[in-house]
Simulated scan of single mutants.
Amino acid sequence: MPRLATPLTESQIRALEPRATRYCVADGNGLVIEVMTTGTKVWRFRYTLDGKRQPLATIGDYRMISLRVARAKAQKYAALVAQGVSPVATARRDRGAESKADVLREAAELYLATAMAGKSDEYRRTTRRALEKDVLPTIGNKPIGAVTADDIVTICEQIKSRGSPKMALHTRNVIKRLYAYLIARQLASSNPAAVVPARSIATFDTRTRVLSGAEIGVMLHTIDTSNIRRPLKLALHLLVLTMVRKSDLVESTWAEFDLDSALWTIPAARLNTRADLLVYLPRQAVAMLRELHRARASQNFVFPSVRGDDRPIAKSTLNQAVKALGLEVEHFVLHDFRRTASTHLHGLSPQSEIGNDTAHDEVQDEAKRHRQQLQGWADFVDIQIEAARQTWSEEV
């Protein structure tokens, strides 16, 4: 029985390097990718007809055809072979129908048809809208390599003139992702949107700044894949999930937590309030705190100073960690995590009063409601992180 090929991934294909002679790597079901000595990668279809192995049928250049599309074509050709028909003529017609992405409009269509596969309907809709409404009418007919940073600025200024600075920034980010995709496919050599600072496009009042779901995902994924210390990564994630103030978290002690009950009681004395603050912990937060507890360097503080003395990290430590990452999410401060969580939580539970400020004597059903709401928020955050992770793996 012939050995079945292990299906390839986009990242594996991008990593294939040229050799002294060209070679093929199988994806399965007749689909192979041939790596030329120049580094060019070409999809081919391997098949047998009338009991004889036939020359490979060419599907097309990898830069122009994604793995998903190549598999679909191979499946179509395999159906022809099963009927006793050679797929060569059909493959030739298909190659003729493939647009060569010389100008940005054609490149954008390739991007939408391939990179957007598997994305949510909303993600695809907002990406297509940005391209079709503002980008392509302005620079769609320009060669890919002729688009400049000035073109991006002009487009963003036009959008801002309509009173939509957030949409201008979103559009710049769409162009940036488009060019990252084209660079990965060797269809572009530079990214004109990458040199346009986000802060030059849109500024936000930090008193009202609310991160979008996508921004939450990008931020936390960037934090998680960075080289900052693991406890700081967890602290930043916990700020998002628990909706507490930064000082409440960095000064927390292990005595305040009952992880078995998924409850954090912040003493009134530490808060300078009349009553303790009960923070109900979603399962993701409990898992992070258990990890911190297993690796704890202090018997007292959850986030101890690395200096070895028995005190918590400085309040500025988390700010400095985020600043060092150079995140694309501009004009935000860590307090925006609280505002962002509260805003999104209202959207997830529009008919409820949202908050963590719950007195000890609050009835059990109220506590249950709060737990459900915060667990829903934590699950929502996980979805945003996974979306950012998938986007990063496909575009980098």
Rank of each mutant, 00 (worst) to 15 (best):
V381H: 10
E395N: 13
L278R: 09
R230Q: 14
L345G: 12
D50M: 02
V25R: 14
T203F: 07
H370E: 05
I385L: 02
K176W: 00
N300Y: 02
A262W: 03
A255T: 13
I266H: 02
A20N: 10
K368M: 07
R124Q: 15
N29G: 07
Q373D: 03
Q375S: 10
D102V: 15
L318R: 08
N29Q: 14
P18I: 00
K160E: 13
S305G: 02
A168K: 06
L325G: 09
A91H: 08
K76E: 13
P350L: 11
A387L: 12
D379S: 14
R369C: 01
A297S: 13
R209S: 05
P312W: 13
M243I: 11
W392M: 03
A198Y: 03
A78W: 09
W377R: 09
V195L: 11
A367S: 02
S247R: 13
V302H: 10
I313P: 07
P312H: 05
K41G: 06
S305W: 02
L281N: 02
N227K: 14
R177C: 03
T21W: 00
Y181M: 05
S342K: 11
S316F: 07
L49W: 08
E34Q: 14
L236E: 01
D151S: 10
P137I: 12
S164Y: 11
R44H: 08
T208K: 15
V174F: 13
M288P: 00
V195E: 09
V35C: 04
A341M: 15
E386I: 06
A198N: 15
G376P: 01
A193G: 09
R53G: 04
A184I: 00
A341H: 10
N319I: 04
E394L: 15
F204S: 12
K119T: 13
L104V: 08
Q364V: 10
E362L: 11
K100Q: 13
A202Q: 13
R245K: 03
L110Q: 13
A194F: 06
Q390K: 14
H331D: 15
I354S: 01
Q186L: 02
K142D: 09
A108N: 05
R93D: 04
P231W: 04
K41A: 08
D61A: 06
V240K: 00
V240A: 14
K76H: 06
L232I: 12
Q83I: 08
P282K: 02
Q75S: 14
G51K: 02
A184H: 04
R71D: 08
I152Q: 04
R162Q: 10
A168I: 05
L239N: 02
P87M: 06
T171M: 02
R311H: 11
K100L: 11
G217K: 09
K76V: 05
S316N: 15
V69E: 14
L187I: 10
K368C: 01
Q373Y: 00
S120Y: 11
E328P: 07
Q364Y: 12
V250S: 08
A79N: 11
L104T: 07
A198T: 07
H237F: 08
D50C: 06
A108H: 08
